[in-house]
Design a protein around this nucleic acid. Structure first.
Length: 436
RNA sequence: GCCUCGGUAGCUCAGUAGGUAGAGCCCCUGCCUGUUAAGCAGGUGGUCGGAAGUUCGAGUCUUCCCCGGGGCGCCA
């Protein structure tokens, strides 16, 4: 059979009642009531009920179909029918069956409550669930929207190595790799050092690539491998890069809210909020943030980073994502530029999502002066000789430049109000799980 | 790394005072022409996470180990 249609298009009413169509997919659920069978067919676009009436097909076909276990893949032809009794309001009245790929009868994922451990052990099957399918489709739209924005704003996509010899974010969270006979090779934590080299070649650039962090973190917002959307641009200061972040995040939110509101709603998000999210986002100095936290009675001292205890109360009242600007030098990596008027703080900013979803962007202005960078490296306890090529960049045509990294899964989690970051990605990697 | 909860049928769980293993779902068989996690009747299915110990006897008590969930610190 050829010329198959998508279940989603039938459910959207794109076919008139009575239209003869062909569908193919996997049996998601099946129920039978003697002379009539109900199959919910899952085809990658959605799930649609297909009814088989004994009157409409020959007896052999009817009896065969009744025996098919769930997850059997098959081709169905029939007639589109509007029916309020069907989930979604539309169904296919089947009058013929094409090729069939019969499943084994013991599919482990049951339409009942199941434990997380079991579902994670069977992740390769659980990803078929419409709930996850929907999130993955939103994720794809998210990336599409971002790339579209980058293109419209003159950014070039570029990719940097995953194998690296130097730490970007601090050595304790590096994954060590066996790299032939070489020692000291690690998986990338960030593209940043390479990005700073590439801006002198390409100008405004971005990447969408995995980053790896060996943080022994067991929380609902950590992955050891996450998708990192990073951006770097020359001739730009801290203020400029925050404005860029505002526009990028707003654009992605708007696209999701306006173009696929139903999917967003089904996942648990609020499409109206996303559609209306507009720049600029509020900016709060680190000093004021500390004071705010202290006023709420939570223990914190100037110079500390925000832990969960501090961040929750701080972001609870936020309507929009909010920038925390000017972190102390002591809690930011060496490449952050010190504030010329106030050496104890950096020209850095993190974007915190509302409602305790945590940090979704981290970035700022980089040190572009050679001497200053050299000193910062030493102050940070690092060996400058490990960063020779990176220092080199400051010798020839160094200009003020800034960038940031956005955690795709974190942003998705916030936008869809998900309980756990694991559901933003098909096969999540955390400290306890690398299988399947 | 630390805190905390858990591991009994394929899945979700119950298991009283230590006395020899249960339910629902899944699956199989039969019935049912509008089901929505369908319903009704019957049936299959177990090294109680592992090892050692106490005991006449351990799913249950003790010790050690393994695996997992949630959280903290840290981070995007």
């Amino acid at each position: 059979m050829t010329g198959f249609v998508d279940a989603a298009d039938i459910l959207k009413g794109r076919y008139e009642e009575g239209a003869a169509v062909k569908l193919r997919g996997w049996i998601y659920t099946s129920r039978s009531s003697g002379g009539i069978q109900f199959l919910e067919l899952r085809d990658g676009s959605g799930v649609i009920q297909c009814t088989l009436n004994k009157r409409d097909v020959d007896e052999d076909t009817f009896n065969e179909v009744e025996k098919y276990p769930i997850e059997t893949a098959l081709e169905l032809k029939g007639v589109v029918k509007r029916d309020e009794r069907a989930p979604g309001g539309w169904e296919l009245r089947v009058n013929g069956v094409g090729d069939v790929y019969v499943a084994k009868p013991d599919y482990p994922i049951v339409k009942k409550e199941q434990g997380i451990e079991f579902l994670m052990d069977n992740r390769h099957l659980y990803i078929r669930e419409p709930k996850l399918q929907n999130i993955f489709q939103i994720r794809a739209k998210f990336l599409e929207a971002a790339r579209c924005w980058f293109k419209d704003n003159g950014y070039t996509e570029v990719h940097t190595p995953m194998f690296m010899t130097a730490s970007v974010e601090g050595g304790s969270t590096l994954f060590s790799v066996e790299y032939f006979d070489k020692k000291g090779v690690y998986l990338s934590q960030s593209w940043q050092l390479y990005a700073e080299a590439l801006i002198s070649s390409l100008g405004k650039i971005y990447t969408i690539a995995p980053s790896f962090r060996a943080e022994p973190s067991r929380t609902r917002r950590h992955l050891s491998e996450f998708l990192h959307m990073e951006l770097e641009e020359p001739w730009t200061d801290l203020d400029g890069i925050m404005t860029t972040g505002d526009r990028l995040v707003s654009h992605i939110a708007n696209v999701l809210g306006e173009e696929i509101p139903e999917k967003v709603r089904n996942a648990g998000g609020d499409p109206d909020y996303l559609a209306k999210l507009k720049p600029p986002f509020p900016r709060m100095s680190y000093d004021d943030a500390v004071e705010t936290v202290q006023k709420q009675g939570v223990e914190m001292y100037w110079g500390d980073d925000f832990g969960w205890q501090q961040e929750g109360p701080l972001t609870e009242q936020f309507e929009k994502p909010t920038w925390i600007v000017g972190y102390p030098s002591g809690i930011k990596p060496f490449y952050h530029m010190p504030n010329p008027d106030r050496a104890e703080v950096t020209m850095s900013a993190d974007l915190l999502a509302p409602a305790g979803y945590g940090e979704i962007i981290g970035g700022g202005q980089r040190v572009h002066d050679y001497e200053q960078l050299y000193q910062r490296t030493i102050d940070d306890g690092l060996d400058p000789s490990n960063y020779e090529w990176y220092m080199d960049l400051r010798k020839w045509g160094t200009v003020p430049h800034s960038g940031f990294g956005l955690g795709v899964e974190r942003v998705l989690m916030w936008m869809l109000k998900l309980e756990h970051i694991r559901d933003t990605v098909p096969f999540p990697r955390d400290m306890r799980r690398v299988y399947p």
